[in-house]
Simulated scan of single mutants.
Amino acid sequence: MTDTASHLPPASAVALATALQKLATTDRLLLALDFDGTLAPFVDVPRGARALPESKAALDRLEHLPNTWVAYVSGRPLSSLEVVTEADADALLIGSHGVEIRFGRDGVSLDLSPTEQETLERLGDVLGALVDDMPGAKLETKPVGYGVHYRLVEGDRDAEVVARAREAAATVSDALTIRYGKDIIEFSIREAHKGDGVERLREYTKATAVLFAGDDVTDEDGFSVLRPADGDVGIKVGRGETAAQYRVADERAIATLLTLLAQAREAHLKSSTD
């Protein structure tokens, strides 16, 4: 385990290994996982992202076990999340930071009001104009908002992009939900976050313990609803302040941890039926 999180003190690595072993024995296990930067490396073309093969193999093993659920919790729109996760019809998906929910074959309708539709259209117009005026910036359309990506903007202009995007959005409404992620600022006409999604998943699966892993600022909402005293485990991927109990270096460390969890869960379930 020390190798999977080599930047951690050995005691922390041992604590994480112990927590995963305990997690594997819970009655009803839910894995709620961010996608980009957690299971999949970042890529220039968002729809081209895919989970590392080792993570995908471990998750396939886990989701076929009894009383074990795998869910993806992402800021991506549901339509994009379905593609990159290669989700089947029974997958549990939380998209758009909790606004969109798909529990298996049942989706959740957004039912935007005429006022919301009008605000969304105006927001798209002003942010689209901003992106057109800033080479390298990209506008991502989301079900209830937009994201302005600036990773490919040349020069040290991150603060400028963020400031101009905020100014543009403020001309449309002062009631927008604003989120900051890695090289993206997002504006939404509805309030929801990943913590809401994790709680909905917990309720739906009746999980007795939850693993949530994520790498971004928006994942802190997911960590905030975990219940460590009940066996929940939160894992932060990469650097940055976090409310998660544990931290690992990168997506490959997560792949290793998921493989170990799959092995431990299989062993526990086998021993309980022998």
Rank of each mutant, 00 (worst) to 15 (best):
L8Q: 15
P9G: 10
A13E: 06
A13M: 01
V14D: 14
A15K: 00
A19Y: 01
K22F: 06
L23N: 00
L23E: 00
T26M: 11
R28N: 15
D36K: 06
T38A: 08
L39N: 00
L39T: 04
P41G: 07
F42P: 13
V45Q: 11
A49V: 10
A49M: 07
A49F: 08
R50Q: 13
A51P: 00
A51G: 02
E54D: 14
A58V: 08
A58M: 05
L62Y: 08
H64Y: 00
N67A: 15
V70E: 04
A71L: 05
R76A: 14
L78V: 08
L78T: 07
S79K: 13
L81G: 09
V84W: 01
V84C: 00
D90I: 04
S96F: 07
H97P: 03
G98W: 08
V99W: 15
E100N: 07
G107C: 13
V108F: 09
S109N: 13
L110K: 06
L112N: 05
L112Q: 02
L112D: 04
S113H: 10
S113K: 13
T115L: 14
E116C: 03
E118N: 12
E121W: 13
R122D: 12
L123N: 03
L123F: 02
G124I: 02
V126K: 05
L127R: 04
A129V: 11
V131N: 07
V131I: 05
D133G: 14
M134Y: 12
G136S: 03
P143S: 09
G147L: 07
R151N: 08
V153W: 03
E154W: 02
A159L: 10
E160H: 10
A165M: 04
A165L: 03
E167L: 14
A168S: 13
A170P: 07
T171F: 00
T171Q: 13
V172H: 06
D174F: 05
A175H: 06
T177F: 08
I185F: 06
E186Q: 10
A192K: 09
A192G: 09
K194D: 04
V198C: 04
V198R: 00
R200W: 07
L201I: 11
Y204D: 12
K206M: 15
A209Y: 03
V210N: 02
A213Q: 02
V217C: 05
D219R: 04
D219I: 07
D221H: 14
G222Q: 09
V225Y: 02
L226F: 02
G231L: 01
D232G: 02
I235C: 06
K236P: 11
G238T: 05
G240R: 03
E241C: 10
E241R: 14
T242C: 02
A243M: 11
A244I: 10
R247F: 04
R247W: 04
A249E: 15
D250A: 09
L258N: 03
T259P: 05
L261R: 06
A262E: 10
A262Q: 10
Q263S: 14
A267C: 03
A267H: 14
K270A: 15
D274H: 07
